[in-house]
Design a protein around this nucleic acid. Sequence first.
DNA 1: GGAATAGTGTCTGTAAGACATTATGCC
DNA 2: GGCATAATGTCTTACAGACACTATTCC
Lengths: 301, 301
Amino acid sequence: MPKKPVTDRNGLTEEQFLQSYDAGMYERPSVTVDMLIFTVMEQEQDNYRKLSEKSLQLLMIQRGEHPYLGQWALPGGFAGVEESLEDAALRELYSETNIDNVYMEQLYTWGDVGRDPRMRVISSSYMALVDRKTLDVQAGDDAADAGWFEVMYDVLESGRKELAEGYVEEQRIRITLQKEDIVLSGVVTITETVQGHVRRVRREIAENNGFAFDHLKMIQYAIERLRGKVEYTDIIFNLMPPLFTLSELQRVYEIILGRELLAPAFRRKIADSVTETDEFTKDAGHRPSKLYRYRVDRGSR
Amino acid sequence: MPKKPVTDRNGLTEEQFLQSYDAGMYERPSVTVDMLIFTVMEQEQDNYRKLSEKSLQLLMIQRGEHPYLGQWALPGGFAGVEESLEDAALRELYSETNIDNVYMEQLYTWGDVGRDPRMRVISSSYMALVDRKTLDVQAGDDAADAGWFEVMYDVLESGRKELAEGYVEEQRIRITLQKEDIVLSGVVTITETVQGHVRRVRREIAENNGFAFDHLKMIQYAIERLRGKVEYTDIIFNLMPPLFTLSELQRVYEIILGRELLAPAFRRKIADSVTETDEFTKDAGHRPSKLYRYRVDRGSR
DNA sequence: GGAATAGTGTCTGTAAGACATTATGCC
DNA sequence: GGCATAATGTCTTACAGACACTATTCC
C-alpha cells in the first residue's frame, strides 16, 4: 500500500522540508571526545623471588598550547561532522596507541558552561581498557609529551550533615598520577544531597596540581565506574594478556578495587569466567602457577 | 609567590591567547537533550476489593513539524550556548511537566551521523523519575500533542552464534507504548559481539511503528538502565509518593523488573530503606496496610 | 464466613568470609 | 630445608528462595 505524503502546516512534505532546511540557524557548542585509556603495568622487583608488583596506568598528554599550556590532559579531540561520536573516540584511541579492537565504552558527557576557557565545549568521555603486552611499545612512550601515569586513588574522608528533610554527604577523593618524577595530584569532592526523596550528586575540583580542564573530574568518575563495573561484569579481562595466572588476575582486581581479596573466595567467584590450560609459569623463584585464559563461551555475567 | 607567565610558541600568555582565539573555526554538530520522564500510574479497577493495577508510564510528544511529522518523540530540545547540558535538561523537564526538584540523571549521549535527517545532531538522553501524585495534573495531560504512555517491555528471543574466537549474541526486545487507542510499537536488536576478549555492543532498530528519530533505542536503553539501577540503588523511591504501603512498593518493583517477587524476601531486602509510620490505608475492601516512608537518614546503598 | 490482602515464621540451599592446611619448585 | 607462592579444604555466617501459615478488615 502506498503511503500518502504527510505535509506540515506549510504544505511541505518531509523531503521538501529537508531540502529547504537551514542547518546554520543556531549558535552551537563544540563537541569533543576525551579518552581514558587504562592499562595495567608490571614493575620490576628488587627481590627476584617475589612476584612483580602491578599498577593501574592511565595515558596522559602534556599540553603544548594554550590553554593549560604545560599541564597534563586526557588524549582527545574534536568530533567531526561526518563521523559518529564513537568513531571519533576510536580515531583518537588509534592515533594515541596505534591500537583498535579493544574494549571501549562511553562514560559520561560533560556539559558545564565554563569547562573550556576558549569557548563552549561539550565533551564525551570514553574509557578504553588495553592489555599492555599487546600494546605497541612506542605508543605514547617515547613521545616526550605523552606517557603512562600510575594511578592512585584515595578516599580522604567523608563528612555528613543532617538537614531537615535529608542530608548532605561529602566525600573527598585524592587522585595522584605519577610517571617517574612527574607527580600530578588533585582532590575531587563529591557532594550528595538528599532532600525529601530526591538525590543529587555534584562533583567539584577542590585542589588541582597539573591537570588541564576538568579532566581530574573525568578521571575520578572513570575510576569510580571502573571499580563498579569490575564487580559485576567481565571487563577486567580486557586488561589481561591472553594467558594469565589466577594470582595475577587477583592482583589486578585488588589494584582496581583498592583492597585485598581472600584467595579461596576469589577463586570460587571467577571460577567459571576462566578456563585452565596445560601451561604453567616458568622460572619464578617459587612454585609455578597454572595459566588460564578468559572463558569466552560463557555469555555475559 | 608570583607565578611567572607561561607563554606558548608564539610568545603569548594564556590570557593573550584567549583574547585572540577565534571560536568559529570549525564546523560543528548541534547538541540537544532528550528527556525520558517516567512515572507510575494507577489504573482503576473493576472489582473494588482488589488492589488497583499500576503501570510504568513515559511522557511522549507528537511531532507537529517535519521531520517525523505525526510520529511520537521524547520531549527535548537544543542545548543553548549559555546553559550547561544539565540545565538544558532541567529546563526541558520543567517546560513539559512544570516540575523541578525531581530525580534526574544523564544516561547516554547518542552520536551517530544519520540520527537526524536535518543535520548532524548529537543528543544526550536524561532520565527523570517523578511521582505521579505530586505532578501537576495538567502537565502533558490535556495537550493533544503530549501524553503519558504505558510502557511494555518484552524480550522476544535471544539467538547465539559461535565464532572462532568468541560468539555473537543477539537479543530482540519489543517496546510497546500505549495511550488509550494510540499504540506505538517497535523492536530493538541488541547485538553483543565477543572476539578474543573484546566485547562490543550494538543497538539497532529492527522495526518501528510511530517513534521519531532513534528515540526507540533511547527508550530501550533507559528501561534497561532503570531495571539495573533499581536493583542496587534507591532510585525507585523517586517514583513513590511520600507515604506508601510495602505492597505498593513491591508492585512498582515488579512492574519495572518485569517479574514477580516473593513478599518475605522483598520485605527483608528493603527493610532498612523504609521507616514505618503510625498510619494505615483506609477503606480498602480488605485488611488495611501500614504506611511507610523512604528512610532518608541511611545513606546510599 | 468468605474474599482479599497484610504480614510473619521457618526451612533449605547457596555463597561469601575467614582461616588453616597442603603442595610445589627453586635456591 | 627454607622461602615464596599456589592451591585447596572446611567451618561459620549471611542471605535469598520457597512455601506455609496467621492476621485483619470489609462485605
